[in-house]
Simulated assay, not measured.
Amino acid sequence: MIRIGVIGLGWWGKQIVTCLAESPRFKVVAGCDVDHNMAAPFARQHGFDLVTDYEDLVRRGGLDAIAVVTPHLLHEEMAIAALAAGKQVFCEKPLALSTASAERILAASAKQGGVLGIGHERRYEPALEKVRLLLESGALGRVLHMDANVSHNNFRNMDPSNWRRDPRHAPAGAWTALGIHIGDLMVSLAGAPTRVAARTASQIFPAPSEDFVSADVDFADGARGRITCLSTPPFYARFTLIGDRGWVEVQEGGNVDKGLPSTFVHCKPDGTRESREYAPVNTVRMNFEAWADALEGRAPYRFTPDQLLANIRIFDGVVRSAAKNGEPVAL
């Protein structure tokens, strides 16, 4: 069993602890949060120790791994500190806020001989797994285009000073919350990205907070992608992959914590369509347990260092392109 500590016990940190509660592979033994009073009742409920300083947590004996679930600007500092202390690291998305930062984290992980875990649990959603399997079987042919819109209004009523709406922590609107998952998915299906053109806007939120981002991404093998995220409408999530022999589309019923089903449609070469609904599964636990398999040498982790870096290159390109009003950026 892997004994893990969690840095950051806000909404998503609590979600991770809850998702791991029934896992035979992990035991959450300690955690920390800057808001000790907020976190203390949750720590008591789940039976783990609470400390006030993340540095104390990463140096703690009896811990095999650390999950970094904090505001994005802190990921590099905390991940590298945990690695330097000899712990394995699982980092929430986005891995980093720049390509250079991601490279430093990945280099530190490689130096320690670790397997870097990443919070991209969407790859484990049953409908999206079906997309991957169909593509790998050749049923869809060559990938021509991918298109996604993932939007929600979870941050609309937050105080504008909240870090999730702060461009220092979350540049390019909802990309760090939503688009980063789709970037990972597209890299896993289409390979290395080569070019990005993106635009952002403050349509509803007062500047400098941005509530709209859309980006076009080119891939080395010729596939194209478009990702759009808005921060003000009710939840909407759709992913479409068009190949030269067919297409597939997945529509999500709600955010990952809502436990709602997804709808899947597959259009075959003759134009006939098959539809089905997929029930939700505990994708967070599935991702962590796949990471555990890699740590224990049972199986490779599906998120390779090259893929992790490619996704941050897309994000980095989105930020740089949007700052130039959509001017394309080579990756």
Score class of each variant (00 low, 15 high):
T70W: 02
A237S: 15
R199H: 11
G317M: 04
N255H: 14
L260N: 07
L83G: 05
A198C: 13
V115C: 08
G10F: 10
R123A: 08
G114M: 07
V89K: 05
N149Y: 00
G86Q: 08
I105E: 05
L178R: 13
L134W: 05
F48W: 11
R142D: 12
G119P: 10
L230Q: 14
D316Y: 07
W12R: 11
G5S: 07
C19L: 02
R199N: 14
A107Y: 03
F42T: 08
V318S: 06
W11M: 12
M146A: 02
A81N: 12
V281W: 06
D166T: 02
F42V: 06
G61M: 00
L116E: 03
G254T: 06
K87L: 04
D293H: 13
L97R: 13
R238L: 11
R156D: 01
Q15R: 13
Q15G: 08
G13R: 03
G225Y: 00
F264M: 03
G62H: 12
P208L: 02
W12T: 12
H181A: 00
R44Q: 14
Q251P: 01
R285K: 15
P193K: 12
G173C: 14
H46D: 10
C32V: 02
C19S: 15
A177W: 00
P193C: 10
D33Q: 00
N154S: 02
S161A: 14
E277C: 07
G259R: 05
N282K: 13
K93S: 05
N287S: 14
A96R: 03
D293S: 14
R59I: 01
T240N: 07
A96H: 02
A172V: 09
R226D: 04
S321F: 10
G243K: 07
I314H: 05
K268N: 14
I7G: 01
V150A: 03
A198R: 08
P269W: 04
A67C: 11
P328W: 04
V17E: 05
M186N: 03
G31H: 06
S275G: 11
V29R: 08
A148N: 10
R320G: 10
V115W: 01
V256G: 01
R142Y: 04
G62V: 07
E277I: 12
T304N: 09
